[in-house]
């Protein structure tokens, strides 16, 4: 799975935000606000990845349990799917 649209992820006054760019900005004109972990997941989803691969990379980056990482990934991806931002 991966993100359906091309996004630019940028720092904005201490926060991290993402907007669709190029032709995709006509299809999705929302604003995505990301915390640190969400940003990592979001950037991984620019390429085709599985949930397991994302969890594995998070475990390399952060000192969290596998259960917590899997929960965070699953929850965030479900949220992105509900907004129509994921394609399989």
């Amino acid at each position: 799975m991966k993100l359906k649209y091309q996004f630019a992820v940028r720092e904005v006054g201490g926060s991290v935000m993402a907007v669709a760019v190029g032709a995709d900005s006509d299809k999705f004109n929302g604003l995505v606000k990301l915390n640190e972990v969400a940003r990592s997941i979001f950037e991984m989803l620019a390429d085709d990845v599985t949930e397991e691969e994302i969890v594995s990379r998070l475990l390399d980056e952060y000192e969290v349990s596998e259960e917590d990482a899997a929960g965070a990934v699953s929850g965030f991806i479900a949220k992105l799917r509900s907004e129509g931002l994921i394609e399989d």
Binding site: A8, R10, V12, G13, S15, M17, A18, V19, A20, V21, S25, N29, G30, L31, V32, K33, K79, E83
Partner: peptide
């Protein structure tokens, strides 16, 4: 994701990213 107008987003976040 919440539905915001640009004005509401600016009021909520102070700064926003746009294309």
């Amino acid at each position: 994701m919440d539905d915001f107008s640009i004005e509401e987003a600016l009021a909520e976040y102070g700064r926003i990213l746009e294309v």
